[in-house]
Write a protein that binds this DNA or RNA. Structure first.
Length: 630
RNA sequence: GGGCCCGUAGCCUAGCACGGACCAAGGCGCCGGCCUUCGGAGCCGGAGAUCCCGGGUUCAAAUCCCGGCGGGCCCA
């Protein structure tokens, strides 16, 4: 039994009692323990449609619920003019839940919140530079979604799209081909950083300065788009090396991939020829006959005959080339398993867990994605307009059911604080935040940021002499750093831009990932010093309000997990983890465990054990790394 | 200009999905306390809020609706 199951039981009982379900029973856990463990303002809402007074209705519902003798319900009170407050037999309910949680962990939840096949496309960084802090938001959202869904019993397939035919790649290659940058980075610099911070930035600068280089840039770009030529072959070797370097960073963040899909391979395999299918089938897609857009093919979202650039999307230009949206539309069809279209794949490498990463290639076994139940595309919010157009076409051509599977999982940009921009890049700005720019080299690499974080955490541990071996301390510091970065980027609402300030992100005080890990370390310290296990027949009458406060917070976890998966919001788990850790630290200050005498000591050990198990469970659900010492 | 998103103490954020005990919670910063108790990356106390503005719906609005204002993003 857990609070979610109990809540469902209560809901059903109320629906049956009133004989209608049009007014939803919303259950909440009251802030204050004196209002019980579960509460609903249902009587206020339902009173109107039932033509009754809230107080009377609430009383009747209470009497009915009590008459059912639902297990674990000790008392029900009507308070505050109509709230129905359910008080549980806390000794039994908390103890029983804690015991099962500690014994079964994740098994308590696996398969309970739906099942199916989910494809997630994420990361999608151009192969000309290192992963920066803005990409990290994308990657960490993907990681969290993957862990959440796969842990709860969904089959998850992970794809990473790599655009190796764009102008960014062309500019990088211009640096190697025309500006004679050596292929080997200076003194041990990581290859992706070298490409992005040194070669690419310089190429962009030179192209802007020298007209002659624009022609070279165009020539290289054409070679990349056409493929099957020495420039493309060279470029592909460089790009693969960059991607391998990028993946090292992604792995640090907990990422995993099943298939890397390269734009150049998709072009060569003829994927784009399939665009004609949807062009013919859709009435929204039209070939423009005259005017400015003559010869172009356009997704017509707007009403009327005129092309409205504010609303409509060009998918094929007048010269016959595909736009980004056109490419993405046909790619979407492939990812949804709608095309009978195999692309050659080969093994690219391995994930940290040992599973294979496949990559598209010019030859190899043919691969076709299985149709997923949902397709989550983790893409920035700035792409909303083209993403909506794609979805509309899918809806029209393949029906609501298929179109509904296509989800633009969007998030706002990560910007740079003006202070950081000035201090580290010498860029002055009137505004409080600056847009990052790969072209100007105005961004923080994840590797560099993590290195700074690791250094600070490591020094902290050395000062506290908390860990003996240097090697172990380094590993721990890495996890603390990643956890903190993850909290910074995941706990914030996806619709809000994040202003990244390097100095603030290096501060591990307060509401941070480190805080969560620290509380977990404290819990583990108690457990490992205890020398015995707890007693899971807790008698709360012998304990105080802080024991109770932590306990009733632990018990809420199933509700949080349910919301997180229902709304695909890992943020709910992150913010809950922080509040839970806070509750634990309150408990820690006021409730001595080891120095207490039995039975209090063993009751508290059980609570600490339940807390640690909850943190382990939730951390696993979002991919948050944990440490037992720090 | 149009479309979408955001607006909560000096700053950052939670709560908004599903209106309910919210005279609004947490963090940073500021002021003042707590290291002979299980690890102080912690805890306690204090100051700090027209929940952008106006209207509407409702027994009840930070939450829903309408209109404004301000900011962000997008518009081959």
């Amino acid at each position: 039994m857990d609070i979610l199951l109990l809540g469902d039981r209560v809901k059903e009982a109320i629906y049956e009692f009133v004989g209608r379900r049009d007014v939803e029973v919303t259950l909440e856990v009251p802030q204050s323990p004196e209002y019980g463990d579960l509460s609903t303002p249902y009587a206020f809402k339902a009173a109107r449609v039932l033509g009754r007074r809230p107080l009377d209705l609430a009383s009747d519902i209470r009497d009915h619920l009590l008459s059912l003798g639902i297990d674990y319900i000790a008392d029900i009170r009507v308070e505050g003019g109509g709230y129905i407050n359910i008080h549980l037999d806390r000794n039994r309910f908390y103890s029983d839940y804690f015991r099962r949680l500690v014994e079964e962990g994740l098994d308590l939840f696996r398969g309970r919140f739906g099942e199916g096949y989910v494809r997630i496309e994420y990361t999608s960084v151009n192969p000309n530079k290192a992963i920066h802090i803005g990409h990290a938001r994308n990657i960490l959202l993907g990681v969290a979604l993957h862990r959440l869904l796969s842990s709860l019993g969904y089959r998850v397939h992970l794809m990473n799209y790599i655009d190796d035919t764009g102008v960014q790649m062309a500019d990088l290659m211009l640096g190697f081909i025309e500006l004679n940058f050596p292929l080997e980075p200076p003194n041990g610099m990581k290859f992706d950083k070298y490409c992005g911070d040194v070669v690419y930035v310089e190429s962009v600068r030179r192209v802007e300065e020298e007209r002659r280089l624009r022609d070279v840039e165009r020539k290289i770009l054409r070679a990349l788009e056409e493929g099957d030529n020495p420039i493309y072959e060279y470029s592909r070797r460089v790009a693969e090396r960059v991607v391998r370097a990028q993946l090292e960073t992604c792995f640090r963040l907990g990422a995993k991939y099943d298939v890397l899909a390269w734009e150049s391979d998709l072009v060569r395999s003829g994927l784009h020829n399939h665009l004609s299918k949807v062009i013919e089938a859709s009435r929204k897609i039209i070939r423009v006959e005259e005017g400015r857009y003559a010869g172009a093919v356009v997704i017509k979202v707007s009403e009327g005959d005129e092309i409205d650039p504010k609303r409509d999307e060009v998918i094929v230009r007048s010269d016959g080339t595909l736009t980004y949206v056109g490419k993405d539309l046909v790619f979407a069809m492939w990812k949804l398993g709608l095309l009978d279209m195999h692309v050659p794949v080969d093994v690219f490498g391995e994930n940290p867990d040992g599973s294979k990463i496949f990559t598209t290639r010019d030859s190899g076994l043919g691969y076709k994605p299985d149709p997923p139940d949902i397709l989550l595309n983790v893409i920035g919010r700035e792409q909303t307009k083209p993403q909506n157009a794609i979805k509309e076409v899918l809806r029209e051509v393949y029906g609501e059911e298929v179109g509904g599977k296509y989800i633009h999982y969007s998030y706002e940009l990560v910007k740079l604080s003006a202070e950081s921009a000035r201090k580290y890049f010498g860029v002055e700005s009137e505004k409080s935040a600056v847009k990052m720019s790969g072209r100007r080299g105005l961004y923080f690499n994840v590797d560099d940021v993590l290195a700074k974080m690791v250094e600070i955490v490591y020094r902290h541990m050395v000062e506290n002499k908390s860990i003996a071996s240097e090697q172990e301390a380094r590993q721990v510091a890495e996890k603390v750093a990643v956890a903190s970065l993850m909290y910074q980027l995941i706990a914030i609402d996806r619709d809000k831009p994040i202003v990244f300030d390097i100095d603030k992100s290096l501060d591990f005080k307060g509401e941070t990932g480190a805080y969560i890990l620290y509380s977990y370390v404290r819990a583990n310290s108690i457990l490992s010093n205890a020398g015995e296990s707890g007693d899971f027949n807790i008698d709360y009458s012998l304990l105080n309000m802080y024991d109770l406060g932590l306990s009733r917070f632990i018990v809420v976890a199933p509700i949080v997990i349910h919301s997180a998966v229902k709304y695909l919001e890992p943020k709910y788990i992150m913010t809950y983890l922080y509040r839970l850790a806070k509750s634990f630290n309150d408990f820690y200050e006021r409730c001595p465990v080891l120095s207490s005498t039995d039975p209090v000591r063993r009751y508290r050990l059980a609570i600490v054990r339940a807390y640690a198990s909850t943190v382990e469970l939730l951390a696993r659900l979002v991919g948050l790394p944990l440490v037992k010492k720090m």
